[in-house]
Nucleic acid binder design. Structure first.
Length: 554
RNA sequence: GCCCCCGUAGCUCAGUAGGAUAGAGCAACGGAUUCCUAAUCCGUGUGCCGCGCGUUCGAAUCGCGCCGGGGGCACCA
């Protein structure tokens, strides 16, 4: 609907310009919004006011010209008002609304999917925690946000690939191997202290025990220089498998796991440095190699090869991003914890130095999560190994409630996650409110079928029977769904979908309480069954994007 | 010191590619169930949109300066 109106306005503007009624050139961004107040019609545009300055004309006068030149071939409008400083308020003919449900019915599961992506290749990289321990609550938020952004983009018509970057080549991994070795030696009776830099969690002891069971005491006699890499490999592999399994239980999967080691294996980092050197972005101060990120707005240049000859993490990360673009992605989206925000300028600089548009890298920052229980903070300390894992949270509150909770806030705002609240199956927990609407409709459909009613097709519905104000409100909400997906895809903001779902569910619950769907009136029953079935379609489609179940019974 | 995010109702937060009287949920109080799921619905009200200045026909939204909260400023990853 919104898009129909936009094209009506655009055409009217072109006609006005041809006739010389409105000055200025170029098509401005024409904004059409659903109105809050019915007195302002169903949709409104500020087009005339936006045009006013470049056209050097009175906005109300422009609005008048546009109004007179709008050609409403399909007769969807009952009137257009010009109000206030120059708003154009569009009143849609009441009997048009129900007809719009045809689109929902025709598209079914595909209602809400868009062509805006034009099949462009987008990669979403998220989680990417190094496999040194189980994921915690903060990772969980990043996981859901990344997963749902990927879903939204796919819905919007992009070709999406989800990727997990495994940081398996650095000091942290070495520490992991060392930690396991020390626990292993403790297990075999040695008295050794675990330094603070080592991983303290219980899972390290489990790994050490597994290794002893498998290989006995052979690492005791081995030079640690040899033993640590072996243990690192083993531990990293086991932990990564655990991470992947935990993510799967959370409904998050990836198309590709990319290992940092692979980058080194085929000299990706070396080739990258050569490439940047050829382009003149690398210089040496005699001891280290620097990358001139300041050429692209970073506040200082960054080291890429250390004094000891090892490339930095940053160097590998640039090589990794180079690799991403070489794989043909038009846009690369990175989901990072907010504590990495200082890293953005240098990564952006790197992408530009490689010859890519600044816009082709998008970084979404996910703010920290405060884990609470009954309103009180849950103590978390990574060092001592005492932290609540993602798995524990998912097991305790359930996949759906956990996901929905993370999706109810913008990702760049701090989030309080209360375990008790998330677990409550009550009105304090919006996920059930939405799922309940779905289950209720399923229940209605089942009842109707038990009574011998067929699920009506669009052609069999007497649309004029759907004329109650609540019904029109419901239909309007359904027609907004594709606009919501579009907005969420444009802004990469999953929370828009949860807000929409809460609203849609609310409108439905209210309608349900006031009106019987199934009655003795056959044509009315038929029409209402059709309507609620369309609500069902939209609820299901939206929940699918969020990765939340749409239960038939609760 | 510099950089990023946040500051909106008692609480948790939407609303920010400028737009018309600023919204929702929770909490509080009162009501609704012979009937499709009461995990529901209906009703009752509260705001110096952190503060100030500016840009504009118009600012919660944009700019500048403060104040408060969080985070970041490595040859760590």
């Amino acid at each position: 609907m919104k898009h129909r109106l936009i094209s009506l306005i655009e055409n009217a503007l072109l006609v006005c310009r041809e006739k010389g009624l409105v000055g200025g050139v170029g098509l401005p961004f024409i904004e059409v919004e659903a109105t809050k107040d019915p007195a302002f019609g169903d949709y409104a545009t500020n087009a005339a006011m936006v045009l006013a300055s470049s056209a050097r004309q009175n906005p109300r006068q422009i609005a008048q010209c546009l109004k007179e030149n709008i050609v409403d071939r399909d007769g969807i409008l009952s009137k257009i008002d010009i109000a206030g400083p120059g708003f154009m308020n569009f009143f849609v003919r009441e009997n048009i609304w129900a007809a719009l449900l045809k689109e929902v019915a025709d598209l079914g599961d595909a209602y809400g999917s868009l062509k805006m992506g034009e099949g462009k290749k987008v990669q979403v990289e998220f989680v990417s925690a190094n496999p040194t321990g189980p994921l915690h609550i903060g990772h969980a938020r990043g996981a859901v946000v990344g997963d749902v952004i990927a879903n939204i983009l796919r819905e919007a018509g992009f070709s999406v690939s989800r990727e997990y970057y495994i940081n398996d080549a650095g000091n942290q991994m070495n520490n992991l191997g060392k930690s396991v070795l020390l626990r292993y030696r403790q297990l075999l009776g040695e008295t050794v202290e675990l330094p603070e830099t080592c991983y303290q969690g219980e899972y390290i002891k489990d790994l050490a025990a597994e290794i002893r069971a498998r290989d006995g005491d052979i690492y005791l006699r081995m030079d640690p220089i040899e033993a640590v890499p072996i243990l690192t490999d083993y531990a990293g592999k086991v932990i990564l498998e655990g991470i992947i399994e935990d993510l799967r239980a959370f409904g998050v999967t990836f198309d590709c796991y990319f290992s940092e080691r692979e980058l080194y294996r085929d000299n990706g980092v070396e080739r990258l440095l050569k490439d940047l050197e050829d382009k003149g972005f690398i210089y040496s101060d005699g001891e280290t190699l620097w990358f001139k990120t300041t050429a692209f707005g970073d506040e200082k240049d960054r080291v890429v090869v250390r004094k000891n000859g090892d490339p930095t993490y940053f160097a590998a990360d640039i090589a990794y991003h180079k690799n991403k673009f070489e794989r043909g992605f038009d846009t690369v989206i990175d989901i990072w914890g907010a504590d990495h925000h200082g890293y953005i300028p240098r990564m952006s600089a790197a992408v530009q130095a490689l010859g890519h548009n600044k816009e082709s890298l998008k970084v979404i920052l996910v703010q920290l999560v405060n884990l609470l229980r009954d309103g009180k903070p849950v103590a978390m300390s990574t060092r001592s190994g005492e932290f609540v894992t993602m798995r524990e949270v998912v097991d305790e509150v359930g996949k759906d409630a956990a996901r929905y909770n993370f999706l109810m806030r913008r990702s760049d705002s701090h989030l309080d996650f209360d375990l008790e609240l998330a677990k409550k199956q009550s009105n304090e927990n919006p996920v059930y409110y939405v799922q309940y609407a779905h289950a209720r409709i399923c229940s209605i459909m089942k009842m109707a079928q038990d009574r011998g009613c067929k699920i009506p097709a669009f052609a069999d519905v007497s649309l004029e029977r759907l004329a109650l104000p609540e019904e029109v409100t419901l239909i309007k909400a359904l027609t907004r769904f594709p606009d919501i997906v579009e907005g969420a895809a444009r802004s990469l903001e999953p929370h828009r979908l949860t807000f929409y779902l809460n609203e849609l569910a609310g409108i439905f619950h209210s309608y349900y309480n006031k009106n019987k769907v199934i009655s003795d009136d056959q044509t009315l029953t038929n029409a209402r069954l059709f309507l609620v079935n369309m609500v069902l379609v939209v609820l299901r489609n939206a929940l699918r994007i969020l990765g939340v179940e749409a239960p038939e019974k609760m």
